[in-house]
């Protein structure tokens, strides 16, 4: 049996714990390449990857591009301003034009949930979801897990609080799937207006951040997506910070060695106080390195790179 049997990476939901383990272990193995003086291995020589980004995203796109370069894949990035009224070329036409170049993989970021599934149905290439609407952002959850595992030595039994805009967050959905599959103890926290209905089937929900943070091994802060905040979900940034923001006093309720993760970009003074963001628990730099390692692992496993080429 193949260690990783899927053709695409569309979400964490459909992965078994063993497959998550395989990706994380592969990423651990590949990370060492990033410390070499010459950061390049021929594992994916001759493979072509297209990064198709319909939403601006400096860090995710850069992370994929670096991973592709390190593994010697030929890659091409296309960033298109997203269009909700479907003016101009359709997603399908764009994908079909790209396929004429015979890529082995398309990495897609799109504001519509399910856009990667749509491509998977209509394209020949392997599809990697780099974030779709409010659905999933699997490589973000994998890199968060890799970071946690690195710092804590395990995922099982860790108490992880996920705090912030749960409603619009694909990072939350991927992380809840991943962490609960791997045996972590997850608690979700948001004002009731930002809790998607039924999410409590996956993890308990509280509206009190003090409760959520209490005794946590890690706190994942979610960005308040102000561009989506047209519905009046909370009265003011001021009140949000006061009632639901992560302040130093609140962070102190967590375990002494708590890790604070944020997928960025941060709204300082809203969901997170600057003193916490810049404090000693931050692992943002590790997240960047791990992001590249995880994406290398995903490319490698999906494109069937040869193990000898990495050694």
């Amino acid at each position: 049996m193949k260690a990783y049997p899927h053709r695409h990476l569309l979400g964490i939901e459909e992965l078994s714990p063993e497959h998550v383990q395989t990706i994380l272990d592969t990423a651990d193995g590949l990370r060492e390449v990033l410390d070499r003086p010459i950061k390049k291995v021929p594992a994916l020589r001759g493979k072509t990857v297209v990064n198709l980004f319909y939403e601006p995203s400096t860090r995710t796109r850069a992370s994929f591009e670096v991973a592709e370069k390190v593994l010697s894949a030929d890659s091409l990035s296309i960033t298109t301003a997203t269009s909700s009224v479907q003016k101009g070329e359709t997603l399908l036409d764009t994908a079909r034009n790209l396929e004429a170049m015979n890529p082995d993989m398309i990495v897609i970021r799109h504001s519509s949930s399910g856009a990667p599934h749509f491509l998977a149905r209509h394209c020949r290439s392997a599809i990697v979801n780099a974030g779709d609407g409010a659905h999933e952002h699997p490589t973000q959850a994998l890199l968060d897990a890799l970071t946690l595992r690195q710092k804590k030595g395990r995922l099982k039994g860790l108490r992880v609080a996920i705090v912030g805009d749960l409603l619009h967050s694909r990072v939350m959905r991927s992380n809840v799937w991943l962490l609960t599959k791997m045996g972590a103890d997850v608690v979700l926290c948001a004002p009731p207006t930002l809790v998607p209905p039924g999410i409590e089937a996956l993890a308990p929900v509280t509206h009190r951040i003090d409760e959520a943070v209490e005794g946590a091994d890690a706190v994942m802060m979610l960005r308040i997506q102000r561009e989506r905040m047209t519905g009046g979900f909370y009265p003011s940034d001021r009140e949000y910070h006061l009632r639901f923001g992560l302040t130093a006093a609140r962070a102190a309720r967590a375990k002494k060695d708590v890790l604070i993760l944020h997928p960025g970009p941060m709204n300082r003074g809203v969901e997170i106080a600057s003193e916490v963001a810049d404090g000693p628990y931050s692992v943002i730099l590790d997240q960047v390195t791990n992001g590249v390692a995880v994406r290398m692992a995903v490319l490698y496993l999906l494109l069937g790179g040869s193990a000898e080429a990495v050694a």
């Binding site: 959905r173 209905p197 039924g198 999410i199």
Partner: peptide
Amino acid sequence: NEGPVATLLGLRG
């Protein structure tokens, strides 16, 4: 439809 399925799919309900 709004509900647990929409929540998992990230679609507005």
